Amino acid sequence: MTERIYLDHHATTPVDPRVLEAMWPWFSERFGNASSISHAYGHEAAEAVDEARREVAGLIGAAPEELVFTSGATEANNLAIKGVLQAAGDRPHVIVAAAEHRAVLDPVRRLRRQGVAATTVPVTQTGRVDPDAVLEAIRPETRLVSVMLANNEVGTINPVAEIARACRERGIITHTDAAQAVGKIPVDVRELDVDLMSLSAHKLYGPKGIGALFVRRCEPRVPLLPQIDGGGHERGLRSGTLPVPLVVGFGVACRLAEQERAGETGRLARLRDDLWQRLQPIDDVTLNGPALDGTDGGRLPGNLNVSFAGVNGDALMMRLAASLLAVSSGSACTSANPEPSHVLRAMGLSDRAARASLRFGLGRSTTDGEIERAAAIVCDVVGELRRLD
């Protein structure tokens, strides 16, 4: 029986067995509510949450009290963007980049309908945000700039630190969606100089349903209006009973990522480059995003995004799924209203090229043999589709 190959680690990662082992007792005998500090069960849970908070903070160079646990990066993005702009008063202005995740673009779209002014700055052909474009978009009423650290489709690493420093000089709050970057490349909030940063456990071999927002501790305090009320948890910024098992898993996943990142980075970059070389027999295959050698700003080590000229994107995805190869496309094939990737279109690709694109996301479990088999499958499928066209 042919085994499935999972190369969609940007979408989600499997929970590491060591993470699952650490989480399990908190689902059963150690079931206390971390807010119930009047008895031993609650104290035990609170201590576990504190330890996990330290582990997550340690991975990004933050102080533990600067973290607000959320249900994931999407909620963290909403809290950051809506929280700052709703606290800013009448008609504030926000700047975002055209290649941001929908978890940033959609909250901004909703706020625009509520009277917030927004500017979307373009990206380069490699998906990179130009700091000068951000600075040119700044207005007197600009209150927030949100630029992702690493792109979820093409792996582009953005110059967030340069942007954040320029914004700080102008008194503008900066936010970065770092869900794809944390655990894969070194991330330090002090070096980045951002005020807010979103992250998610399931992108780094932790459980789904838990993430965090880093909120810089400074004077004056970052103005942030809570989006969920009901108990004042997380220093009043995110009410709700903490899911202790998920928090514990998040902490362990961050600790493991810190311990293993250096070796894993080199291994994934080697496998990615090998995959790219194995796709070279295909005519008219194009690399999307930064060069693999890092000469134009760098990309995530496990990311490869390519387009195949003259191939129907929907047919490509269906054939690959039937071949038990799990990758993702630039086209939202399962959507009721499918459309090409907004990221690839922002980079200048045509709708047809964007639809005929594949995103390979390599991860901790990816092997040399899987790369060889995956490349062979893609070569065969693309060749067959071109013969049928």
Rank of each mutant, 00 (worst) to 15 (best):
T334M: 08
T2N: 03
N303S: 15
A22Q: 11
L279H: 09
A117P: 00
E65K: 02
T142I: 11
R91A: 15
A48I: 03
G297V: 05
D274F: 01
A326N: 12
G58T: 01
E100T: 12
V378M: 05
P301H: 11
E66T: 00
G89W: 09
V129M: 08
P131S: 07
P64M: 06
V343E: 05
M197L: 15
V84P: 02
A52P: 01
G206R: 13
V327P: 02
M318V: 06
E66M: 03
A354G: 15
V244L: 06
S350K: 06
Q125N: 09
E44D: 13
S146E: 03
R143N: 08
E136L: 11
D296Q: 09
S35W: 12
A52H: 04
V382W: 05
P92D: 10
L135T: 13
T74I: 11
R217A: 15
Q125D: 14
L225P: 00
A40F: 13
D193F: 12
E3Q: 14
S329Q: 14
A212T: 08
L196T: 01
D90A: 12
G183Q: 07
L287D: 03
A356H: 14
I37H: 04
S365E: 15
E44V: 02
F360R: 04
K184F: 03
G32T: 07
M317Y: 13
S198G: 12
M347R: 00
L268P: 04
D274H: 13
H202Q: 11
M148V: 14
T366S: 14
R53T: 13
G155W: 06
R170T: 10
D283A: 15
V94C: 04
R110M: 05
I163S: 06
G230W: 03
R267V: 11
E153G: 00
R102F: 08
A22V: 02
V248M: 06
E141A: 15
D389F: 05
T12Q: 13
R359S: 11
A309D: 14
M1W: 12
R54S: 05
G58A: 05
E136I: 04
G266V: 12
G127V: 07
A63S: 14
F69R: 04
V343F: 05
A62I: 07
A164D: 08
R113H: 12
A48S: 06
I185G: 02
V19I: 07
R278F: 01
R221D: 10
T74P: 01
G266W: 11
P338G: 01
L385Q: 08
D106T: 07
G363F: 04
S357M: 08
A99R: 03
I157G: 05
T366R: 03
M23P: 09
L111H: 08
I95S: 06
P186I: 06
V15K: 10
E66R: 02
S35C: 04
V15R: 15
F214D: 09
C254V: 02
E153M: 10
E384D: 12
R387F: 08
T174F: 04
T126Q: 14
L388V: 07
P92G: 07
E169R: 15
G348W: 10
P140M: 03
R112C: 06
A161G: 14
G236M: 02
V56H: 01
